[in-house]
Amino acid sequence: MSALLHNGPEAIASTPSAGGWSVRDLDPRVRILVVCAFAATVVNLNAFPILGTALGFSLVALFSARLPLGKTLKRVMMMDTFVVFMLFLLPFTMPGETAFTVFSFAASWEGIFEACRIALKANAIVMMVLALVGTMEAVTLGHALSRLRVPEILIHLMLFTIRYIEVLNDEQKRMRVAMKARGFRPSNNIHTYKTFGYLVGMLLVRALERSERILKAMKCRGFQGKLYLLDDMTCNARDYIFAGMMIAIIVVLLSWEYLNVPFV
C-alpha cells in the first residue's frame, strides 16, 4: 500500500509467489514469532563460528524471500553512522592485547573481536527481520500483531500511521517542489533550519486539519472507534513445518554455544 514501506517492487505478501516455496507464503503470525525468537537467540551467541552460522541462516532466509539482494544489502549497510562510529571506536576503547596503533592510540584485539561480534549479530538479525517480516504488507503486519493480542488501540494507531505515511510524504514532496521553485537549496545555515522548521510546522498543521476531516468522514460511515480486521489467518501444515525448522535451528545454535555440543 505504501511505497515507502515496501521492500522492492515484488514485495506484495498477499500474492503467492509464482512457483516454488517462499517465506512470503507463510502465516504472518508465525513469521513474527519466529523472528523474535531468532533475534533473542542471536544476541546471546558469542562464538564466531556460531554467529557465522546464524548469519548463514539469515542469508538463506533472505534468498528464500526473493528480496532484491543488492538493494537489501545496501539497506543493511546503511546502518546509522552512530553504529559504524561506535564499531570503529571499540577497538580503541576496549582494553586488551594491542593489535595495531593509529596516532599512538592502541587498538586491542578484544575490541576488534567485540566490534565484529556486534556487527555479525546486528546483520544476522536485520536480514532475518527484513526477510520474514519486512516482506509483509505493512497492514498485514498490523493485522498479525492484532491476532497476537497486541492491544487494539495500539494496532489502530499503527494502521492509521501506515495509512498516512505515504500521503504525508507526498505532501512533503509537493511542498519541497514549491520551495525549490522559489529557489530554496538546503545547506547548513540558519535559513535552512528556519525553512525546515516552517516545513515541519506546516506539515503538522495540515496533518491536524486532515485528521479532522478523516474523523468526520469516518463518522459519516458509522465509525465507532473500531476497525474491523476482516482477514482470518490460519496456520497450516507448512507453517508448522517452518516453525519446527526454525525452533530446531534455534536449539542447535543455543546448544552449540552453551552446551559445547559440536554439530560440525
Binding site: I153, Y164, A207, G225
Partner: peptide, 22 residues
C-alpha cells in the same frame, strides 16, 4: 478512539519529518 485519527496522522507526520535531512 476519537483521538486515534489525530494521533495516527501526527505519528505519520513525525515519521515523514524524520526522512528530511539537513
Amino acid at each position: 478512539m476519537e483521538k486515534i485519527p489525530v494521533a495516527g496522522v501526527l505519528s505519520a507526520t513525525f515519521f515523514v519529518a524524520s526522512l528530511i535531512s539537513v
